[in-house]
């Protein structure tokens, strides 16, 4: 464990908590893409299947459980409890356009052709593009609530910090996982224009609006 990975995990946890609290306290999921949340729940499910078979540490197991519980709780709130506030008219990205190619790629490019490893690879590739429905929704509505932009900033920062962690681990342990690194770079690049808008607008107290 290194500080970059720890900060990355905390940033990820912060993002998940921000979103869950936003939906719970405002009793509304306006502006949030339910499809992205379903994809994130799928990412955690396919990545943490080894939760009970491969014990790494208390921290690792606890975080996996928290991510799983929070992601399913978010999906539940969006599609059941606060379904009336779910903006399905703007959340129209076709998830199958992501899941099918990612599933195929996971079969072709992986470290080990075993079910668990292919599912892990699938989760890594899927996580890289899982935010697209959310970014697409914001581009359609042309704006995002400030709390949603904080959520996205924390979520984007988590994988950016992981990239620093991978550089650190390469130089200190000689460890590198090319699949995670390439997918992590793609994932972080997808946030770039959002990062620009966040830093130039939200941090100056303005509403996050996309140029029409």
């Amino acid at each position: 464990m290194n500080i970059f990975r720890l900060l990355g995990d905390l940033s990820h946890l912060l993002a998940i908590i921000i979103l869950l609290l936003k939906i719970w306290r405002t009793r509304s999921c306006a502006g949030v893409s339910g499809k992205s949340q379903i994809l994130f729940a799928l990412v955690f499910t396919t990545r943490y299947l080894d939760l009970f078979t491969n014990f790494i540490s208390m921290y690792n197991s606890a975080m996996k459980l928290i991510y799983l519980v929070c992601s399913y709780a978010t999906v539940f709130l969006m599609y059941f409890k606060f379904k009336a506030t779910y903006d399905s008219n703007h959340d129209t990205f076709r998830m199958e356009f992501l899941v099918v190619p990612v599933g195929g790629l996971a079969f072709l490019v992986n470290h080990d052709f075993t079910p668990l490893e292919i599912l892990w690879t699938f989760s890594i590739y899927l996580e890289a593009v899982a935010i697209l429905p959310q970014l697409f929704m914001i581009s359609k509505t042309g704006e995002a609530e400030t709390i949603t932009s904080h959520y996205l900033f924390a979520l984007g920062s988590y994988r950016a910090l992981y990239i620093v962690n991978w550089v650190f681990r390469f130089y200190t342990e000689g460890f590198f996982d090319l699949i995670a690194i390439v997918a992590g770079c793609v994932q972080t690049i997808l946030y770039c224009d959002f990062f620009y808008l966040y830093i130039t607008k939200v941090l100056k107290g303005k509403q996050l609006t996309l140029p029409a």
């Binding site: 690792n60 470290h111 460890f175 996982d177 090319l178 699949i179 995670a180």
Partner: peptide
Amino acid sequence: PSGGETHDEL
């Protein structure tokens, strides 16, 4: 080693 068999990252 690239991509260890056990993935120790979240």
